[in-house]
């Protein structure tokens, strides 16, 4: 029953995000602040992880290519496919569920605990629109983060391949260009947009509806991370089945 109640409350919250909008002059600085906190603030960690994971994918692929009949350009091909199809859109989103998701839950949860949300409601403000809408708009820039993750992942693979002595630049780049299907990029960005929506709304839901004190803020952040990750994995499976199946 609790799960059903939460699912219902989540969809009612989604509706409320777009109801009774806050004045644009108030909303604009909130959006810029959230772009800074959620997007710009995540670039460093996303770049770091993408570059090195790209490198690891290239090394692992090379080390597992034991048959001499396998072409050398397979390293570039496998790295590109892994990064574009799954690593950048899905696994970066799981990492973002931890970084951005727990930030959203704890910041909104702290406002709940300290009665700041009650203060907004007493003033007649739609607190859900005021708090969640700027995060939703900020995360529409999330595909930009994923584009950087894709690029750096492929570059990381290239660097590991060359400097680790696993192949030449020509072989790697040939593999990157091999059998490129543009729809795979569209598929990746469709997933990214859906995940961005989940990253903005599920942690906001757990922060907004939390009850209790400081300890519960921490618990709500953990729960939000778990559920955001679970939903991302399930939606990833569904979208992959629909779009590529």
């Amino acid at each position: 029953m609790t799960y059903l109640h939460n699912i219902g409350a989540y969809f009612i919250m989604i509706k409320d995000i777009f109801r009774r909008p806050t004045k644009w002059s108030v909303m604009k600085p909130l959006i810029f602040k959230d772009i800074d906190d959620l997007i710009i603030g995540s670039l460093g960690i996303v770049a770091f992880i993408s570059f090195f994971v790209g490198g690891v994918v290239a090394i692992q692929t090379s080390l597992n290519m034991t048959s001499p009949i396998m072409p050398k350009n397979l390293v570039g091909f496998a790295t590109r496919q892994s990064i574009i199809l799954e690593f950048a859109p899905t696994f970066i989103s799981i990492i973002m569920a931890g970084k951005v998701g727990s930030f959203i839950t704890s910041s909104i949860g702290t406002m709940r605990v300290t009665e700041q949300i009650d203060a907004l409601e007493v003033m007649g403000i739609n607190a859900i629109n005021y708090l969640v809408f700027p995060k939703f708009i900020a995360l529409t820039l999330y595909p930009f983060v994923i584009s950087i993750a894709m690029f750096l992942g492929v570059v990381g693979g290239l660097m590991a391949s060359i400097y680790g002595g696993y192949g030449t630049m020509e072989d790697y780049l040939e593999g990157v260009r091999l059998d490129f299907i543009p729809f795979h990029l569209i598929y990746a960005f469709i997933k990214t947009f859906v995940f961005a929506f989940l990253l903005a709304t599920i942690p906001s839901f757990y922060g907004y509806f939390m009850k209790g004190g400081a300890l519960e803020v921490g618990k709500a952040s953990t729960t939000a991370f778990v559920w955001t990750s679970v939903v991302i994995i399930l939606v990833n499976f569904l979208l992959t089945s629909i779009l590529l199946g």
Binding site: R20, T114, D118, A119, M123
Partner: peptide
């Protein structure tokens, strides 16, 4: 009408509830 009425209310919360940002 509720929103209009609420804009005529002021509230001082126990913990002040100031926006810390």
């Amino acid at each position: 009408e509720k929103i209009d009425l609420r804009s005529e209310m002021g509230m001082v919360f126990q913990g002040s509830a100031l926006f810390d940002s």
